[in-house]
């Protein structure tokens, strides 16, 4: 049963990674990269690594998105 869940999560991760690479809007690409980190964290729990899943959920999905949007905000302020 966990194998089917792993296949589902892998397909979702690949679709989100393709969205992150090929979408024209940069903000959508950043949100898709954050969602890749989110589902990778669920995959780490299936692989019996809850500590890695905790770190990935807080850093790969939360803090990474915040840093990307901070830089986008700085770029937008430079234009003004």
């Amino acid at each position: 049963m966990s194998i089917l869940l792993a296949i589902f999560l892998g397909l979702v991760i690949l679709v989100l990674a393709g969205t992150a690479i090929y979408h024209k809007n940069t903000k959508v690409a950043i949100i898709a990269a954050g969602a890749v980190g989110l589902f990778a964290s669920v995959l780490y729990i299936l692989l019996a690594a809850p500590d890695v899943a905790l770190t990935e959920a807080s850093i790969g999905s939360g803090l990474s998105t915040i840093i990307f949007f901070y830089v986008l905000n700085k770029i937008r302020q430079t234009n003004d």
């Binding site: 990674a17 690409a29 890749v36 980190g37 780490y44 890695v52 990935e56 990307f68 830089v71």
Partner: peptide, 17 residues
């Protein structure tokens, strides 16, 4: 340039998996 950094981030996640 930001897309290149996003590609690096995906590469990092895949390596960890």
């Amino acid at each position: 340039l930001i897309k290149i950094v996003i590609g690096f981030s995906l590469f990092d996640t895949g390596l960890n998996i």
